[in-house]
């Protein structure tokens, strides 16, 4: 799949933002006044900024409100509804904490639950795609949720929880790469099933249907070199969990260390999210006889 910056930024930042909102909603840490303002400002900037970035890849963003209508069937619509509900509820909860010095715990709990459910519905947009076998596994939502909770805990200053979650995240990420590498073959779609011509022998594309490129090829037939991908996997694995956890657990905690850990996690998050799209193979590539090259 084409690793579009708008979608990478959207899923990465809004995941972090809703992760932070989840922790804040459940009172980790318990904040009020100016601290609460700072925390909620970061969370809202990430979550809402991510959502805004997602509208940049729309062909007709002026009709975006219509996306709230199909929550009964569409994960994308559910995500939109849940995102707005989370931001609304958490906004009220934040007003209480910041201006009224009162903690409406029930409201916070509801907002926290809505926030993490938003991340779940984001992940299901990808996990539901039968056409992209690498994404279609139960580990995809687990991974997205762990990203959000781990990164959120890091931003919320939950030193021990964040370290443990980020280490768990590194392991989960490694496992999903390994399992993901086999998913396309397991799913069983080949150029022979795509064309139905297997009974005639081995099938190959003799001539493309057009001389130039097209929307499908640009959007869904992204070929990434394996060596390149392996290098990025290494960088992502180190920076998203191992380095932040080492910084937090080994060195004496202060704000500079925290900023370094967050920066490292962000780098890993973006590298891993780029790979999430770039390495994902869509079955339509079979009609163009293009599979990942070594």
């Amino acid at each position: 799949m084409h690793p579009a910056p708008s979608v990478i930024i959207f899923t990465a930042l809004s995941g972090l933002g809703f992760g932070l909102l989840t922790w804040l909603g459940f009172g980790f840490p318990e904040v009020s006044g100016a601290t609460a303002f700072a925390m909620f400002f970061v969370a809202f900037a990430l979550a809402a900024g991510g959502l805004l970035a997602s509208t940049f890849h729309l062909g007709n963003p002026q009709r975006a409100l219509k996306a709230f209508s199909q929550w009964r069937s569409s994960w994308l619509s559910r995500e939109a509804v849940l995102a707005v509900a989370s931001l609304g509820v958490m906004g009220l909860y934040a007003i209480g904490l910041i201006f009224l010095n009162s903690t409406w715990q029930l409201l916070g709990g509801i907002g926290g639950a809505l926030s993490i459910t938003t991340v779940f519905s984001t992940s299901m947009i990808y996990a539901q795609m039968k056409t992209v076998p690498r994404w279609r596994m139960p580990l995809t939502p687990v991974l997205f949720l762990t990203y959000a909770l781990g990164g959120g805990a890091l931003l919320a200053g939950q030193v021990l929880t964040a370290s443990l979650l980020l280490l768990a995240l590194s392991v989960l990420q490694l496992i999903s790469w390994k399992l993901g590498d086999r998913r396309f073959a397991q799913a069983g779609s080949t150029i022979e099933t795509a064309t139905g011509l297997g009974f005639l022998g081995r099938v190959r594309l003799l001539e493309k249907p057009h001389s130039g490129s097209n929307y499908l090829m640009r959007e869904m037939v992204h070929v990434v070199g394996r060596k390149h991908a392996l290098k990025l996997r290494g960088i992502a694995l180190l920076t998203l969990g191992i380095i932040p956890a080492a910084l937090l657990l080994v060195l004496p905690f202060n704000h500079i260390i925290a900023v370094a850990a967050v920066a490292s996690h962000l780098l890993g998050l973006f590298a891993a999210r780029w790979l999430f799209f770039a390495e994902a193979e869509h079955v339509v590539g079979l009609y163009y006889d293009q599979r990942r090259v070594g």
């Binding site: 799949m1 890849h57 729309l58 062909g59 007709n60 963003p61 009709r63 975006a64 219509k66 996306a67 994308l76 947009i125 795609m129 039968k130 056409t131 992209v132 779609s189 795509a194 929307y215 499908l216 959007e219 869904m220 869509h282 079955v283 339509v284 009609y287």
Partner: peptide, 13 residues
């Protein structure tokens, strides 16, 4: 709205 998700969901291009 031109989000393109339906094109992702279609195996046949």
């Amino acid at each position: 709205i031109g989000c393109g998700l339906c094109a992702w969901a279609c195996p046949y291009g």
